[in-house]
């Protein structure tokens, strides 16, 4: 059982580390959003692995919160970036369109 613990946490930790590298490198904001999303999923996967291996259901409500938080975070950042693209110039573009 200890070997399973080590193997699972090593793989999850490796994945989280690689994601952190992308988070630091990521040339653009969107890369960082994707990396943050994946990082939160890996964190919740780690919590679920703990709950499964230790038979401990106390962290399960945390899983609900983390998974919803990841969604709200990435969607709001995506909307923010999309707003920079579409809405900001639309204000001075309106005169020309005429309808």
């Amino acid at each position: 059982m200890t070997a399973v613990y080590w193997a699972a946490y090593a793989m999850l930790g490796g994945g989280a580390l690689l994601t952190l590298v992308r988070l630091a490198l990521g040339p653009s904001l969107l890369d960082r959003v994707v990396a943050t999303d994946v990082l939160l999923v890996i964190i919740s996967a780690g919590l679920a692995v703990y709950a499964a291996l230790a038979r401990d259901p106390t962290v399960v409500p945390v899983l609900v919160v983390v998974s919803l938080l990841a969604f709200v975070g990435s969607v709001s950042v995506a909307r923010y970036i999309g707003g920079m693209l579409v809405h900001a110039p639309a204000a001075d573009d309106r005169g020309e369109e005429g309808r």
Partner: peptide, 16 residues
């Protein structure tokens, strides 16, 4: 559990 953890590892790798 091991398969899921492996998929998380490949996700980090693919992200990089």
């Amino acid at each position: 559990v091991l398969a899921g953890a492996f998929l998380c590892l490949t996700a980090g790798l693919g992200l990089l």
